[in-house]
């Protein structure tokens, strides 16, 4: 349905019919949309180290890692939804907050395993509801996840009363949040492990293969005998599980949890994914490049903070970057088609 991306009414073009390969075309736009993130992230880090006072300090780097970890975990998970050509999952905001509150709040009263169990059930519920609405009912993913965001946040605020939960000072959550390996917090290592696992799933398993194939061509994937509804549900479940882990990490970082703590995660995660070169048109993308996108967005935000630039302008800058990255991708596809 929403595949009406072409606005100008362009008459259909027939296939090229020369024998053998069509001529390979190198395009700067194509390169930028797919591989640009390597160069830009490297440049940004170099600029930050050389020109920005206070960036290259150990404390600052650790801080960047702390902030990047939960966003990064959400982003690598949500990469699955984006690659499967379902735009994004806006409800990660609600999912992360819910997981945080459950982890801290429920473990205070009912114990740690119960909290994790409940969080897992909630995450699966999110994934399945979003996935069924999009995969089976063919509803638009943006609208579906917009509504589940409000349902989820509504339930969370209602049940939690909007209050802040504090973990015990000596509990396992606190311990996890404080743990570091040299300058690198444990949460950043969690991000790396999850990235590695999801990279493996996306590139080396049948399920990941079907996600990419479905994103590239829904009709062809269905006609190969694939249960495409399951593929979509799977993509949303992966995203939900990642959002749950991100919620744990976020709660552990501050040893507190509140329903508003993940505001803006939808935005930051989408920025990282798109800047990482995953196409919003589906089919193309990589978890590893999303990780680079996370580093890019986190470093950029950190630089802006260090330069004393306010939250509003940060949002404008990153919003502009998203639109720019999507435009480059869209234009590159157009060049590629000609």
């Amino acid at each position: 349905m929403a595949d009406q991306t072409t606005t100008a009414a362009v008459p259909p073009r027939a296939a090229s019919d020369e024998p053998g390969l069509a001529k390979g075309r190198f395009s700067l736009l194509v390169w930028m949309s797919e591989r640009g993130v390597f160069l830009f992230t490297a440049l940004l880090v170099v600029v930050a180290v050389v020109f920005v006072n206070g960036f290259a300090s150990l404390a600052n780097i650790t801080d960047v890692f702390y902030r990047a970890a939960p966003i990064g975990i959400v982003a690598v998970g949500m990469t699955f939804v984006v690659i499967s050509a379902n735009y994004l999952d806006l409800s990660v905001v609600a999912q992360v907050a819910t997981a945080s509150v459950i982890l801290v709040g429920v473990s205070n009263t009912a114990g740690f395993p119960a909290a994790i169990g409940l969080a897992l059930v909630v995450a699966l519920l999110y994934g399945v509801v979003n996935g069924l609405a999009v995969g089976v009912f063919k509803a638009n993913a943006v609208i579906v996840t917009l509504s589940t965001t409000f349902i989820g946040l509504g339930i969370l605020r209602w049940l939690s009363g909007g209050s802040i939960f504090f973990g015990p000072e000596d509990g396992p959550i606190r311990a996890f949040g404080q743990a570091k390996l040299g300058p690198i917090p444990l949460s950043a290592l969690v991000l790396l492990v999850i990235t590695a696992v999801l990279w493996f799933v996306l590139t080396r398993t049948n399920f990941g293969f079907l996600i990419r194939s479905f994103g590239s061509n829904k009709a062809a994937t269905r006609l190969a005998g694939v249960n495409t509804a399951l593929v979509v549900v799977g993509a949303f479940v992966i995203t939900s599980l990642a959002a749950m882990l991100a919620g744990f990490v976020l709660a552990a970082f501050s040893n507190t949890a509140v329903s508003t703590m993940s505001d803006g995660y939808d935005f930051s995660a989408l920025a990282a994914i798109i800047i990482g070169g995953t196409s919003v048109f589906g089919g193309k993308g990589s978890v590893l490049r999303t990780l680079l996108g996370v580093i890019f967005v986190s470093v950029l935000t950190n630089i802006l903070v260090l330069l004393g630039i306010g939250f509003g302008l940060q949002q404008v800058a990153i919003g502009a970057l998203i639109v720019l990255a999507v435009s480059v991708d869209a234009l590159a596809r157009r060049v590629g088609k000609k």
């Binding site: 293969f209 990419r212 194939s213 590239s216 061509n217 009709a219 062809a220 006609l223 190969a224």
Partner: peptide
Amino acid sequence: TDGLALTMSVSDNIALPNR
């Protein structure tokens, strides 16, 4: 539109129904 995932490799396309 129905037969091939054009942005994927020959190998991927052949593997799709045989995965």
